[in-house]
Design a protein around this nucleic acid. Sequence first.
RNA 1: GUGGGAGUAGCUCAGUCGGUAGAGCGUCGGAUUGUGGUUCCGAAUGUCGCGGGUUCGAUCCCCGUCUCUCACCCCA
Length: 423
Amino acid sequence: MITSVKGTRDLLPPDTRVWNRVEAVAREVFALYGFDEIRTPVLESTELFVRSVGESTDIVHKEMYTFTDRGDRSVTLRPENTAGVARAYVEHAMAQAGRPWKLYYIGPQFRYERPQKGRYREFRQIGAEVLGAADAAADAELLVMLFDFLLRLGFTGVSVSLNSVGTEATRPAFVDAIRSFFSSNEKTLGDDDRRRLAENPLRVLDSKDPAVRQLVASPGFPKMVDLLPTLDPASDAHYRELKVLLVASNVPFKEDPLLVRGLDYYTRTVFEMTAEGLGAQNALLGGGRYDKLVSDLGGPKTPGIGFAIGEDRLIDVLPEAFRKVTIDDVRPVTLIPLDRNDVADALVLAKELRGAGFAVDVVTAAKGPGYGLKVAERSGAAVAILLGQKEREERTANLKDLAGRTQEVIPRAGLIEALRARL
RNA sequence: GUGGGAGUAGCUCAGUCGGUAGAGCGUCGGAUUGUGGUUCCGAAUGUCGCGGGUUCGAUCCCCGUCUCUCACCCCA
């Protein structure tokens, strides 16, 4: 048996209804905030991710689906979508529009990792990006939209973790402060954290080692937000303004000075949301500002901010009410021709009913009422219509309410009205 | 890339101290050839993940491998 590739999976009905509905809500909400969809290729030049996501990140140095195509080009299945959006922005000179771009995307991403709960090699992200807006208000509005979306899916009582990671102006000073903090108690660090301290010191902040966590959470541990007022007043002002705007907009957030993110391109604002029930991979969404990314890719200096929601994880923790309503949404009318001679009649009637807006399923096998009703019931139909020789000749329909187990013979002329009354 | 757990019927699982397998659910047929949810009767399931080794004989023991799963690393 040929199975799906490791770390990939099939999404089957009726779950696909839920996926489609979630995506439809995203499109509706994002449109209300002035966002348009962008679709970028799944396949990009490997160099794009090396330059944007960052060579020192795990994503680039061990998690990419990279291969050489027949033209000897190194290409990669995108591990995230922000780089592709930024690349398209530069490639199509979108800065020339003279206004910020508000873009969203929905699509598969790929990372070559060992699969576990909430983590797949092929996963989907729903994301949004604002390109060309530097103001804290842009950050705020993006988060307002995010919460609007989550609220419409039925999430309640959620809040986002917020932090500022500064800019190149502050990053080196912060890294120095972290290193000197640990120089005195380096022996409490495990191998992993020692490696982090050397390669990517910010990562030590979200170590899972209890001893290190305790150290990092202690009052003496350096915090980026404490360095901002003196080293980078502009970033400090940005952060303060953002918080004021979020409070004014009723966006629930909690400041987390330990929040850092795994991609190199973030500047100033970073945020993340976690959820219960996702196991160890509990990050539901993440995002932040990336004011250097576009220029790093050779474009004009363009500030940007965005988020990505892990759609697989989102659906994993989706409120049950939303799921149920979505799955129960489609209640087809099932037409049951009793005999081969009744099939044409059924197809003609089906067309008429579909024209009137009803979802109609025809049991084409025409194996009699017992089989037909069984199929109708199993496919979730609310009503079934039996069509035999008698109904054809008398221009009637035998309308059955499957739940109530009642039936009624109705003239064809009044059928649409009768169905409207029942559905 | 590292570590733990697991692969037996469509699904959930039992089992054989080594003698080529069962249950429940589901599916199909019948009671009920123009009436489905219940009930009753009957039937079919399967290279026991794959490859190799040990053995007279392996689903069981050993080795390898693949897949699933959870965790680490890291992230959505």
